[in-house]
Design a protein around this nucleic acid. Structure first.
Length: 282
DNA sequence: GCCACTGTTAGCAT
DNA sequence: CATGCTAACAGTGG
């Protein structure tokens, strides 16, 4: 389910474990994972150090010495896992990194095979079309810029939060949690928001994402970080996956509706289509 | 066994 | 530009 908080969790633990480590080998087990660059290119990484691991939207980016970078999109089931040196891959492992010294092997696993790896020259990463098209980082955009951007938008809030060209990194779970905290209806048209509602939405985006990162993300299926630790933010979900359960803020029940082709959970009583400037305390 | 559903998003039709 | 549908694939739960 990797959305921004889960990708950030991977990026932080990989950065800590891999920065300065020297690559011993890179083995591609599932050819279609690699979308840009050839398998032969991967062998050129041998002997180079990892310079940094970071994130942009839902992309996890590993920068190597020698001017090569890997941009991973984890899609729905991609993830990294450290395993003991030489451990044999399971059938869902698509790529194996090994490193010199004591660093464990790193397996990239992806059950559904949707994940993608773009091997790019480092200077080409920012200009890579699907990365260049991303909107601002939700935790970096200022309230002023956010207000300016959202006022131009006409679509429904739910679809807008999922639109990576608007803000980068928010997915289905966090969109619903953010809207609940803002007390905004998912079908509300963005251009109709008043200033207080825009401020509340901006604050809710920051609050939900920061707290989710602090909790190591949400483990609603088998998601775990690269050390195998599960996140705990699923325990703080107020609406996602809670159809029929009582709302945390009123006596009503959470409903599930399909909006823009995506399952959407919300409280129809707290999240009215009309104006509602008050955030729910969490 | 069958069917519906799942965290993403690119591409194409309307 | 917005929105809706499909496809890519595997597993799970009813």
């Amino acid at each position: 389910m990797p959305e921004l908080p889960e990708v950030e969790t991977f990026a932080r633990s990989l950065e800590r474990a891999l920065r300065g480590r020297r690559v011993a080998s890179v083995r591609l087990l599932f050819r279609p994972l690699l979308r840009t660059g050839s398998p032969a290119l991967l062998s050129r990484l041998k002997g180079w150090k990892v310079e940094s691991v970071g994130r942009r939207g839902k992309y996890l980016i590993i920068r190597f010495e020698g001017g090569l970078s890997f941009a991973f999109h984890l899609k729905m089931t991609g993830g990294f896992q450290f395993v003991p040196k030489g451990a044999s891959p399971d059938k869902q492992t698509r790529l194996i990194f090994t490193f010199r010294g004591v660093t464990p092997d790193l397996h990239f696993r992806d059950t559904r095979k949707f994940a993608r790896l773009y091997a790019l020259r480092t200077e080409a990463v920012a200009g890579f079309p699907s990365i260049a098209a991303l909107g601002p980082e939700p935790l970096e955009v200022s309230l002023e810029d956010f207000a300016r951007l959202i006022r131009r938008r006409k679509g429904r809030l739910k679809s807008l939060l999922l639109n990576q060209a608007f803000l980068a990194g928010i997915g289905n779970i966090y969109a619903d949690e953010i809207l609940f905290r803002s007390r905004l209806h998912p079908l509300r048209k963005a251009s109709t928001l008043r200033q207080e509602e825009i401020e509340c939405l901006w604050e809710s985006i920051r609050f939900v994402l920061r707290r989710a990162i602090a909790r190591g993300g949400s483990s609603i299926r088998d998601y775990a970080d690269s050390e195998g630790r599960r996140g705990s933010f699923q325990e703080s979900h107020r609406v996602y996956g809670r159809e029929g359960e009582p709302c945390a803020g009123c006596e009503g029940l959470i409903v599930r509706r399909v909006i823009g082709g995506r399952a959407s959970f919300f409280c129809p009583k707290c999240q009215k289509k009309g104006h509602s400037p008050f955030a729910i305390g969490h």
